[in-house]
Design a protein around this nucleic acid. Structure first.
Lengths: 196, 196
DNA sequence: CCACATTATGTTAGTTATGACATATGTTTA
DNA sequence: TAAACATATGTCATAACTAACATAATGTGG
């Protein structure tokens, strides 16, 4: 059974290492990569990314090369060191706590009996739409991945496999979320017979 | 379209108000209530609850009565004020951002191509079990609710309806999560033909 | 009888995360 | 021509959150 060892960095640090394990990137690029699809399950703003990169560098887990640019501001391109790769691998073996979720909409659902049912139903319908839109994004991401990666997206040693796994999670999550919103909307409208 | 108004308190504050809208509770009881089922989507420790209650009291959203006990330490029993109920209702109409998820296991999945597939598969199987256990808890919670609440759990004006909604979300979430873990484990073991 | 758990309420130090401020260059759009 | 946008890297004040410290009464099990 894996044991939770003393961490070499924060979880955000491992997120950055996981990105750099695939290719070299600047802080700016890492910040943008912390959107779709990884960032959909771990996110940060540049104000967190830059200091974290500095810490990772001090810890010897990443190194950077200053790239001078004439047309744009210069940038620091970071890469994973051997120590960084080892730390990332070690983290994968550590025990992981199930996520502690904080979801304001579910919290509102708990008090929804105090709200106007018609307005609440409309609100839930809007959220259903939002999550359907996210679902569509993930699904088209998976389609693109199938084009790009082919069979390698099923091979556990391939970096594409990691993207595949995250996209699958996103697809399941968004589908379930949107179904729940829709179910709740129907209950609120009193057309819940169909939903039972 | 609902607009995000200036908040009267933090989200944790609304969680506490939502609990107090149902019945009077002490800080200690609120902390424990911030487990199943509400707390499964919003949690806090007592070190956050007590100061937040003090702030809510200063803001006039809750009031308390000191209950002296001989066999146990005295306690402060908090109740919702009219202003508190109004603030809670107003919050329900505010726009809600979709939750920004932070899930370390999904983050690990992104880098899982660097791990030993056999060990990783075992890890995912353990997580599948954890989420199946949570699923069972939610399902038995729903069964108990059906006994207690009867038809009222389908009525949008009933406090039970809020519990019902949260439990439904929990059931869907945990089922989906556990399915994903299982799917990923099969992929890692190379028995993914069944999973495609 | 000692250790531990439960009830009960707080504080404090530290970490993590957010939103705004700050600066600089070049390109595109209205 | 002015404004907005993209690239690029940082800082800072505050807010939110965690883990540990602190206290105190009673009940329970070994």
């Amino acid at each position: 059974m894996p044991v939770r060892a003393k961490a070499a960095t924060t979880t955000l640090g491992y997120a950055l290492l996981g990105l750099l394990a695939r290719e070299e990137r600047s802080g700016y690029e890492l910040t943008h990569a912390l959107k779709n699809p990884v960032g959909y399950f771990w996110f940060a703003q540049h104000s967190q990314v830059y200091p974290e990169l500095a810490r990772l560098e001090t810890a010897g887990l990443v190194a950077y090369t200053l790239v001078e640019q004439s047309d744009r501001p210069d940038k620091k391109v970071y890469r994973l060191t051997d120590a960084g790769r080892a730390a990332l691998r070690a983290w994968l073996n550590d025990a992981t706590e199930p996520p502690r979720k904080r979801d304001e909409l579910v919290l509102k659902a708990y008090s929804i009996w105090l709200a106007d049912p018609t307005a609440a139903a409309q609100m839930m319908r809007e959220h259903a739409q939002t999550h359907l839109a996210h679902l569509a994004e993930f699904q088209s991401g998976l389609s693109r991945l199938e084009q790009e990666a082919g069979e390698t997206l099923w091979q556990p040693e391939s970096p594409w496999f990691g993207v595949h796994a995250v996209l699958r999670r996103g697809i399941g999550y968004e589908r379930e979320y949107s179904d729940w919103c829709e179910w709740l909307a129907q209950c609120l409208e009193g057309t819940q017979e169909a939903a039972r």
